[in-house]
Amino acid sequence: MRKLGDIITSDDILGKDVIDSEGEAIGVSTKIHIDNRKQTIIGLTIDQGFMKPELYVGLEYVKKFGVDSILLNTSPKSKVRGLKVLDSNGKRIGYVDDVINIGKTNRFQGINIKESAFKKAYTVKSKYIKEIGHSVILRKNFIKEETGKKEPEEKEDNAK
């Protein structure tokens, strides 16, 4: 038999802050997605704020529907977009223009970096990323690649 304390309502979910696995508040839950056939909740829509796209999060990424907030067990890679990019010496080299995800997963294979709004973006693979926090810090000998071009650097080494 279900205990009353274990049951929550949509009011306990909607309008709550959504906190990712790094503790960052990524937005407010606005919609609950329900599988009509199975009649179960399958995910949430998160409003990330003004001028930002809404984010769908599957229920498998929800750790807990909390008292004041909803805790996630993952951190959406899309929030990397717009972060400053620094080289290994701390010098600002641009900002993250886009994140290249692997399929529709939350893993990514690289980031597109733009030095300024009018310059062409280039891609840096995720293996050259040292740290993602308040900024993205790259490793020492990172390689710039053309955006959209998938050219493994091992081939370049072999050619040399």
Binding site: K16, D17, G23, K64, G66, V67, D68, L71
Partner: peptide
């Protein structure tokens, strides 16, 4: 200045 949450999502 960082916010603190417990396991129940309590701020």
């Amino acid at each position: 200045g960082l916010s603190v949450y417990d396991t129940s999502g309590r701020n």
